[in-house]
């Protein structure tokens, strides 16, 4: 027992490359390769188009990253909640005007997030709980809309949904702002730290006197607010809401989180990674769309990308261990 050093052999080269750097590298590589193959791809206009396409999915993916980071895997209720909130927003704007409608939507979103977070701390399994909530939300959307299209006629909403300040769509501004704010919140806010620590090791968090239940509730409220923003933008853009909006989109949100390299175990990663993941997927989708890939093939490729990304990040983790 003579040598008592703490430096294990691999520790010296453990200055690991942050995961988001890999995602950015993948985005740049794909952009260059696709630009060579498809000339119309590597233009500034198309770059804007891609960010625009990533925006709506990305806003929810950023919210989803809170859930993943807090150690609750992911929610399967985001799309259904989106439809419900869209209907609520459309109805409320119709009856109360834009500002009140926005406030009502956010209020319902926060309540929906709290309900899910609290249920998960009772049930314990986020997948099953949010699956159940998903049918509840979809059902409520159908009930409230009476299975018909709810139209709104609001100039403010239309401006919000179709405006392009400085030539960039409002959705993209919101996406970028949300990514930066979320990044700062997770890094710097006390609640963000609570979320990260609760996800990193819930037992240690409890043993350190932290409120893990609060972390779960906060994460789901953050997701619900993201979903509300998506719903408000979508309803504003098309001036209408339906109960079957966003059907089948849940995988897209989760895919962005996974492709962004946020560890499913929780306690690691940042919302910025989810945003980058959404951009990477939008980039790939755009490339395939322009090259006439069928929808089935596009789905397969995106699914493959998710597998590839999770596998690669897993290997990366192991190598660094």
């Amino acid at each position: 027992m003579s040598i008592m050093t703490d430096v294990s052999p691999s520790a010296a080269r453990r200055r690991s490359v942050p995961r988001f750097v890999w995602v950015i590298a993948a985005i740049v590589a794909l952009y260059l390769v696709a630009g060579v193959i498809t000339p119309s791809f590597a233009t500034f206009d198309n770059m804007l188009v891609i960010v625009r396409a990533a925006s709506i999915t990305g806003i929810v993916a950023i919210g989803m990253s809170y859930v993943t980071i807090s150690g609750n895997l992911f929610a399967l209720s985001a799309a259904a909640l989106g439809a419900f909130l869209a209907v609520i927003f459309a109805l409320a704007v119709g009856h109360l005007g834009f500002a009140a409608g926005l406030a009502a939507t956010l209020l319902v979103a926060i309540l929906a997030g709290m309900a899910q977070g609290l249920s998960i701390s009772v049930v314990g399994n986020p997948i099953i709980t949010t699956l159940a909530f998903s049918t509840v939300f979809r059902g409520l959307a159908a009930l409230f809309s009476g299975n018909s299209i709810v139209r709104i006629d609001s100039d403010i909403a239309l401006a919000l949904g179709t405006g392009r300040p400085l030539g960039v769509p409002t959705q993209s501004w919101a996406f970028i702002a949300l990514a930066l704010v979320s990044w700062a919140l997770i890094r710097r806010a006390r609640l963000g730290r609570l979320l990260v620590l609760s996800g990193a090791n819930p037992q240690t968090a409890i043993a350190s006197g932290l409120n893990v239940r609060l972390a779960t509730v906060v994460a789901f409220v953050a997701l619900s607010v993201g979903v509300a923003i998506m719903a408000v933008f979508t309803v504003s853009q098309f001036s209408q809401a339906k109960a079957d909006l966003f059907a089948g989109y849940d995988f897209d949100y989760i895919a962005a989180v996974l492709v962004g390299g946020i560890a499913l175990r929780g306690g690691q990663g940042s919302p910025l990674q989810a945003a980058l993941g959404a951009i990477l997927i939008a980039l790939l989708q755009n490339f395939m769309l322009l090259n006439g890939f069928t929808a089935g093939l596009r789905m397969t490729v995106v699914g493959g990308l998710v597998l590839l990304a999770t596998g690669a990040f897993h290997l990366l983790q192991r190598r660094l261990r």
């Binding site: 006390r190 620590l197 968090a205 350190s208």
Partner: peptide
């Protein structure tokens, strides 16, 4: 391993975990 440390977080984050109110101002760390 179970409830003593946050293995995937940095040492400073581990050390401040029980005392977040002592390292934050206006809810920001």
């Amino acid at each position: 391993k179970r409830d003593g440390i946050f293995a995937v977080r940095s040492v400073p984050e581990n050390l401040s975990a029980p005392a977040l109110d002592r390292v934050s101002r206006l809810q920001m760390i």
